[in-house]
Design a protein around this nucleic acid. Sequence first.
DNA 1: TTATATGCATAAGAAAATTATGTATATATT
DNA 2: AATATATACATAATTTTCTTATGCATATAA
Lengths: 112, 112
Amino acid sequence: MGNSNLYKGSLTTIILKLLNENDKMYGYEITQKVKELTKGELKITEGALYPSLHKLEADGLLDVEVMKVDNRLRKYYKLTPDGTKETAVKLADLETYIKTMQALVTPKLRFD
Amino acid sequence: MGNSNLYKGSLTTIILKLLNENDKMYGYEITQKVKELTKGELKITEGALYPSLHKLEADGLLDVEVMKVDNRLRKYYKLTPDGTKETAVKLADLETYIKTMQALVTPKLRFD
DNA sequence: TTATATGCATAAGAAAATTATGTATATATT
DNA sequence: AATATATACATAATTTTCTTATGCATATAA
């Protein structure tokens, strides 16, 4: 995903959070929204996004609704009740991660 | 590493930062220090740690010094000049990652 | 007419971890 | 005396998650 490998493992969190805010979104819309919200810092690739959406659906966290808009296909995803629960879990995990990393990293830097 | 998959990709950052603070450390010491600093939240596995140390050494970011203490082997690692530079890069990446994720995730949660 | 944008998808490969072992010494426990 | 735990290193097999490359299809801008 991002320019740094730190983003590995955060895609699911990002998808769930966006769907928690936006009720229903389709894949391409997610890529654009992420680009916009991060001012271009994070660009989600389709090769990562679509398999991830499929897995979330298979795991029962997302529901799909296929629509045709302007003669183009769209697959709208929305959270299931389990998906909403999992969103809270993932966001708590992210907070813990950030606090833990800050505990490890916050101390003074040295330049010898 | 951790209980959440968000830690994927942060091991190098953690190792470099600890060595930046502590001058020289050996592998087992790093696992214990991380457990202590994170109050048990993060447990680095040897299967992740040792290959990572070897790679950092191969990349010229760490130097090794083998010692025998109490009849047991220790491999002390310390930052090379390149390693010190890379530490600053990795820490900047981490800050960017945290800010980016907060930009994506900070908005209001919903519980339908 | 050619490139860019929109919209989905998958396959091959790389990177980074987990899990499972293996070796060896020292100390604490039963 | 035997066994478990702690210390200390290492690697191999597998899994997860991503990148890169490719493919199909329609719409719009250059």
